[in-house]
Design a protein around this nucleic acid. Structure first.
Length: 418
DNA sequence: TCTGGGGTCCTAGGACCC
DNA sequence: TCTGGGGTCCTAGGACCC
């Protein structure tokens, strides 16, 4: 069956760093790191000039500075990232409504219905690149292929600032020499496992029996690889997707947990999470907390409740119990470096609201404040914040911000739609 | 100098039900 | 007295992605 390379993957190059170089011409051509600094914090993004020195996102600032002494650290312009990312998506939606945005800076497009208007996929890819450059001012790479997975690999190969089209029938010769790490689901751990068996390229992988691959990587990743090899990969572009969980976490530096400190941090996290739930008319049944200890070891504790919750106070109380149960298992002297809360098993809040006050007392829904009162308080707080801003009102005085913690505007960039 | 924060998906074991 | 197999839900941990 004839099928063109009509799935595109468009991916902005070093997005945050490119925006900084766009906003401040003095930074162009220089190694730039967004976030962090020579004495702490973490690098959120690195320009290609910085990457040449080995600087990467997620790297501690001091290490980046050691690798590249002339590295320019800049604070992020987070609201600009949102605005410019949206502007790029608008360009893509000019081509086709079939746009699946998968993060702030990348998206899949299905252009099979757009070729009669705009020409074949390579022409569309080139036009997207030149329009984004001209109208937004940013470099973007585009991959085109018959499937999403392949289009994404193609855009990675195209970077920086390039285009790669994998014409139908040429998939094998394109893929075979590429490193296995370009495959979705093959990260550092799996790459190492494969390398230990002499498998370094996608071609090596294709020549390995699928049963052996599944033994190494597990059933799911193995099956995905085999689907790719047989061109049975996903091609459907999904234009909207609801989140399956909502969470928030905070790095704390290093501290010995005490009741007041833990409660303050959890109240802040629960406030962030529950506010987003209510804003999306959602509620969730499963509460998961994460506690990270010195040395990066972390544990989780989860509890599935009989009914979904979205009240700030209820979420705080459940999270507090879970955290202390994790801490009890870890021993009293353990120092912690991070606390996180996540709510999953989401349902539509409207459906369950009427039931909330009819149930008998439940040890996992404790407290003296009845559900109706909690909803009323949350509703008023939400309304005040809508009118006067997030800082106008809250359950607790401003929470202790660690030196490395990131601004809320950065957190919001990564939030998924509820 | 000592490692962010938002998510998704998978695996494995146990409880429980039929 | 001891026994099967399938399905669902829950929990904990971990790999991975941006």
């Amino acid at each position: 069956m004839a099928r063109g390379a009509t799935i595109l993957h468009a991916d902005l190059d070093a997005f945050y760093a490119s925006v900084e170089q766009l906003l401040d011409p003095a930074l162009r051509g220089l190694p730039v790191a967004v976030g962090g600094g020579p004495r702490g914090g973490v690098v959120l993004a690195a320009s290609y000039e910085a990457r040449a020195y080995g600087v990467r996102g997620g790297m501690p600032g001091w290490r980046a500075a050691a690798l590249c002494p002339r590295l320019r650290f800049v604070r992020g312009h987070f609201t600009e990232y949102q605005r410019l990312g949206d502007a790029v998506m608008a360009v893509l939606r000019d081509v086709t409504p079939l746009v699946e945005r998968i993060s702030i800076d990348e998206a899949f497009l299905d252009v099979s219905g757009a070729t009669h208007l705009f020409g074949p996929p390579p022409t569309i890819a080139a036009s997207i690149r030149s329009r984004v450059r001209a109208e937004v001012g940013l470099p973007i790479s585009v991959g085109a292929a018959t499937t999403k997975h392949l289009a994404k690999i193609a855009s990675q190969v195209a970077k920086p600032d390039g285009v790669v089209v994998v014409e139908p029938g040429t998939e094998r010769e394109f893929l075979d020499p590429l490193p296995v790490g370009l495959v979705w689901g093959v990260g550092p751990v799996n790459e190492q496992k494969l390398a230990e068996r002499g498998i370094r390229t996608i071609g090596d992988l294709a020549r390995t029996p699928s049963s052996a691959v599944e033994r190494i990587l597990g059933h799911a990743v193995g099956a995905r690889l085999s689907a790719m090899a047989h061109d049975e990969d996903a091609r459907r572009v999904v234009t909207s997707r609801r989140a399956g969980s909502v969470g928030a976490q905070s790095a704390l530096g290093r501290r010995r947990p005490d009741v007041e400190g833990v409660r303050a941090v959890l109240a802040h996290l629960a406030d962030r999470v529950s506010r987003r739930l209510r804003a999306g008319d959602r509620a969730g049944r499963t509460v998961t907390v994460r506690v990270r200890f010195v040395g990066m070891r972390s544990v989780t504790r989860a509890r599935t409740l009989p009914e979904p919750i979205s009240a700030t106070l209820t979420l705080t109380e459940v999270a507090e119990r879970l955290v202390w149960s994790a801490l009890a298992d870890a021993g009293r002297d353990a120092e912690i470096t991070l606390l996180g809360i996540s709510v999953s098993h989401l349902t539509d809040q409207r459906v369950v609201q009427l039931e909330l006050d009819l149930r008998p007392a439940d040890p996992w829904r404790p407290g003296s404040v009845p559900g109706a009162a909690r909803r009323a308080v949350d509703g008023q707080v939400d309304a005040i914040r809508t009118r006067f801003g997030t800082e106008a009102v809250g359950y607790l005085p401003a929470v202790l911000r660690g030196p490395g913690s990131v601004p809320d505007a950065f957190r919001e960039l990564a939030e998924h739609e509820l």
